[in-house]
Amino acid sequence: MFRLPRVPVLLLAGAFPLFAGCRSEPSEPAATDSVVAADSAPGDRLMRDLEVLAHDSMAGRAVGTEGGRLARDYIVAQLRSMGLEPALDTFAVNTSVEPDSEPREGVNVRVTLPGTTHADRYIVTTAHYDHLGVREGEVYNGADDNASGTAGLLSLVRGWVDTPTEHSIIALFTDAEEGGLRGARHFVDEPPVPIEHLLLAVNLDMVGHSSSELWVAGTWPWPSLRPLVEAVEPAEPVALRFGHDTPEDQGADNWVMASDHGPFHRAGVPFLYFGVADHPDYHRPTDDVATIDPAFFRGAIETVRRVVARADSDLDGERSGPGR
């Protein structure tokens, strides 16, 4: 997640073959369809996707690296296993890591699930799959930030394939969120559908770290969304909290532009952002799968599913109302 000013991140284009000794030798190939059993229970599959995406073999999933490509290949393979054919949208990323560095290629993965009633009106759901890569010989696996949101969005897509929504869903897995929200900005700058047809943006970023509190931002700048969210009963053991989106929230406590929902908000698209508060493992090499609370993680994704379902039934082809 892009919440605070960043120190320069060392993105090693050739680091992938070198990372194995940074923590542990990978026990199996990470980016294949076969790693998730077809008969896995949904909750097990959610955790398995998280484990794969936050594995050392992904080398921290930095934009423009082999690890980022492996993560992207895994996402694409999972979508294809659902019978979907995702689109890949590329864009240039100037990392500014070195004075003579070449621009890297960012790649968004998106798929559209047609709605049953309002096929030309869309709820866009986002999660960034990139993270910080390898720094000073350590892999930044980003289990919470944001393998959790990526695995969660894959889980939601599986549910929508089985039970189609009234509005069309765009599931957008963004690249290059870290350091500038560039994948989301690229989507908003070159949308595949008219921007006015986007009724709501729902962003998942850091939704799995051990906590009882899941924060939702967006209801202050878009006040008509608050009753929609309040009508939803959070799944156990999640306590849903509103905030981090008012003028009184200063600096890092204001999340309105902190992640991929920001470019949508700036373009006039109402948004809801779901995430946990910053924690000691945020943007550190300790952000590993062991820090994820499976019960909370499953409850967070189920809570988001319920909110999207409520929005799908309430919006009826129209945006929720003007923002502040």
Rank of each mutant, 00 (worst) to 15 (best):
V7L: 13
A13C: 08
A13Y: 09
C22I: 03
C22V: 08
E28S: 15
S34P: 02
V35W: 10
V35G: 11
D39Q: 13
D39L: 10
P42K: 10
G43W: 09
V52N: 02
L53R: 04
A54V: 07
M58D: 00
R61N: 06
V63A: 07
G64D: 09
R69G: 03
S81C: 05
M82N: 11
E85H: 13
A87M: 11
L88N: 07
T90V: 06
A92L: 14
V97L: 10
E98I: 04
E98A: 14
V109D: 03
T112C: 03
G115N: 04
I123R: 00
T125H: 00
A127C: 08
H131S: 09
V134R: 00
R135H: 06
G137E: 09
N141A: 13
G142W: 02
A143E: 08
D145L: 04
D145G: 02
A147P: 01
A147W: 01
S148M: 01
S155T: 03
S155Y: 00
G159R: 12
W160R: 13
V161N: 04
H167P: 03
E177R: 05
G180L: 03
G183R: 06
A184L: 09
A184V: 12
P191M: 11
P191T: 12
P192G: 01
V193T: 08
V193C: 05
E196D: 14
L199V: 11
L200K: 05
A201V: 14
G208P: 01
S211E: 04
T219K: 07
W222F: 15
S224C: 10
L228S: 05
L228E: 06
L228A: 11
A239L: 11
F242H: 14
G243Y: 14
P247A: 04
P247D: 04
Q250Y: 05
G251P: 09
V256E: 11
F264N: 10
A277H: 09
F296W: 03
I301F: 02
T303Y: 02
R306D: 07
R319H: 07
P322H: 05
